[in-house]
Computed example of a mutant assay.
Amino acid sequence: MANILYITANPKPEQESFSLRLGRNFIEKVKELSPRDEIVEMDLYQTGIPFIDADVFSGWGKLANGQTLSAEEQKKVDRINELTDQFVEADKYVFVSPMWNLSIPSRLKLYIDTICIAGKTFKYTEEGPVGLLQGKKAVHVHARGGIYSEGLAKEMEFADRYLCTILKFMGISDIQSVIAEGMAANPQEAESIFARALAQVPQAAARFVE
């Protein structure tokens, strides 16, 4: 039995979002293949996530020096610890996001900032940073309106590439991407394009639950 975090970063209703529809299809297939897995769903637009701001830096500095934190500093630092610990304790991760302005939504970046913490998800060594989450799996279920998998536009793809890179930085090496792209560029073919993305789901889900 695995502990899975299903993390979504899209404020739209599920039926109006290609990424959320694709993600729901994926996680339902996972449930079908591995019904004993425990799945925790996190809608990042409904989850309290603190910014790494002056209070947080001040609080971390005080902790390092054995000083007492203010109430606001303690609240934010505790919440970051809670989110990070939850992430570390999970076995597998499903990230669901659209591409916005060539990258990921800001709420997803905000979440990554709270979980990419030295000493918890990675550490510094004499040879450089080392990820601490080895042996875990992740999937990025992703939708983008244009075509970014080929041609000159490939160099402008900073969404899936960034997420996969930061996960590898934290030690997660088994990463898959299930991508639907080109729906806005070819609106008359949007549903057929989406159907082709759905066809990726069974194989990706089977590998995810292995």
Rank of each mutant, 00 (worst) to 15 (best):
S149V: 04
K31W: 11
K109Y: 08
Q46C: 09
S97A: 12
T47M: 10
Y162I: 07
A184R: 06
V30G: 03
R144T: 12
L44I: 03
F18V: 04
A185N: 01
A185T: 12
R107A: 14
L44G: 00
E181A: 02
V88H: 00
A180L: 11
A138M: 05
N3M: 15
E155L: 08
E32G: 07
I147T: 12
V77F: 12
T47H: 03
I4N: 01
G23D: 04
I80D: 06
L33V: 08
A184W: 08
S192V: 14
R196D: 11
S97E: 03
R107D: 07
A54L: 11
P50D: 05
L102D: 10
M99S: 08
L163K: 01
S106V: 08
Y93I: 04
D55K: 10
S173R: 10
G23W: 00
G66N: 14
V30K: 05
V94Y: 01
V130K: 15
V30E: 02
D85K: 13
F51S: 08
R36A: 13
S103F: 10
D160N: 12
N10H: 08
N186H: 13
T165G: 10
F194R: 02
E38I: 13
L5I: 05
L33F: 12
F87H: 01
A184K: 08
I115H: 05
N65F: 09
P50K: 04
Q134F: 10
N186Y: 12
S70D: 09
I193Q: 00
P35K: 08
K168P: 14
E41H: 10
F87N: 00
Q67E: 15
F122Q: 05
D78H: 13
V56F: 01
A54C: 06
N65E: 15
S58I: 15
R207V: 06
A204G: 03
R21F: 07
L20W: 06
F57S: 13
P202R: 06
G66V: 09
R21W: 02
D43F: 04
G66H: 07
I112R: 01
V209Q: 10
P202N: 02
N3F: 15
K62S: 07
I80K: 06
Q200N: 08
F194M: 11
K123L: 02
S177F: 09
E14T: 15
E72S: 12
L44T: 03
V178K: 03
A2C: 15
H140L: 14
Y124E: 12
K109F: 09
E73Y: 05
I49M: 00
R79H: 14
Y93C: 04
F18E: 04
C164M: 12
